[in-house]
């Protein structure tokens, strides 16, 4: 059974289509990266999945149920972000105890272990935490709840590098012991790359790609060399990124539809063939302009 089945989902706020005709399915067990630029519709999509928002058109099924007003979905899902509303007058440890009364699979030992590891103070209020500390605390709630569907919306906001790395490691370890469906949204892929099993890339509210991570690294190829040869090679392919490197030298990232022979031939003509790092690729794919920010300056 698929955890999420999303069919031609659209969400309109005023005049913007935050989610635009999006269809995808999410199989159980796996860590999915929901990647997209700021304003791509990640949070809106996740809030619809969580049953917070109503879709404008289209349908969404989570655990084969409409998540809006579903107790079953809510009981098996947790939505973590840095805006989680917590009581003002409860200590952090009290909040953890309350959370444990809600979730059937709650692992209090894990929660307290992480709590101590990240140096959170038991007698502190949630509203008094710094940004990074709050994200850390919310992340602990998300991990310890052990929900079959765990959603982290930009969970690392404000965390420093060390904490982020610890978080990813904790997430992966806990996932291995208790496989479940985890969605992790982020605008950048680089740090996530090693823990994700698949990637859902969205751009302007619509699905751009949904691939296992290892296929993504084969998705594109980088070519560098003389402009006219590259122009010849890329006439019929999608160009994701183009960058001038000198007078008539060019680097392009293109859809990899070449055969081995074709690439070999290109090498003989002096073209450097390289793989495109997946995090760069995501940036190229979601960019609004082929040449990136340089376009703005070149025009002047």
């Amino acid at each position: 059974m698929n955890v999420i089945v999303c069919n031609e989902l659209t969400k309109i706020f005023g005049s913007t289509r935050a989610v635009n005709n999006l269809s995808f399915t999410l199989a159980p067990e796996g860590i999915t990266g929901l990647i997209g630029r700021n304003g791509a519709g990640k949070t809106t999509l996740l809030k619809i999945i969580a049953g917070y928002l109503l879709p404008s058109t289209g349908s969404i099924q989570v655990f084969a149920e409409n998540p809006f007003n579903s107790v079953k979905v809510s009981a098996n899902m947790i939505f973590i972000d840095d805006n989680m509303a917590m009581p003002e007058l409860m200590y952090l440890t009290e909040i953890l105890e309350s959370a444990s009364s809600f979730y059937a699979n709650w692992d209090h030992k894990l929660a307290m272990g992480l709590f101590e590891y990240f140096n959170l103070q038991p007698k502190q209020y949630h509203s008094k935490l710094s940004k990074g500390m709050r994200s850390t605390f919310n992340m602990i709630v998300g991990l310890a709840a052990r929900c079959p569907l765990t959603i982290f919306d930009e969970p690392t906001t404000g965390m420093d590098v060390a904490v982020r790395k610890d978080f990813y490691r904790a997430l992966l370890k806990d996932f291995m012991q208790h496989p479940r469906s985890i969605i992790l949204s982020s605008h950048l892929l680089n740090e996530l790359n090693d823990i994700l099993s698949d990637i859902l890339l969205i751009k302007d509210g619509a699905k751009y790609l949904h691939l296992p991570v290892d296929e993504l690294s084969e998705y594109a190829v980088g070519l560098q060399g003389q402009e006219d040869i590259i122009a010849e090679m890329t006439r019929n392919t999608e160009v994701f990124y183009r960058k001038k490197l000198g007078k008539d030298s060019l680097y392009v990232a293109v859809r990899n539809q070449y055969t081995k022979e074709e690439l070999q031939k290109a090498r003989l003509k002096g073209i450097e063939v390289s793989s495109v790092p997946t995090d760069d690729l995501c940036v190229y794919l979601t960019a609004k302009h082929e040449g990136g920010i340089d376009d703005v300056f070149d025009r002047n």
Binding site: V71, S74, A75, N105, P179
Partner: peptide
């Protein structure tokens, strides 16, 4: 695959009630 937790409206409301009493002690 994790098993889905079955629950019902009243038991959720009861847990929420206890949570609200604690959260609003102020």
């Amino acid at each position: 695959m994790m098993f889905l937790t079955e629950t019902n409206l009243m038991s959720v409301a009861k847990t929420q009630y206890r949570y609200k009493i604690k959260a609003n002690a102020g």
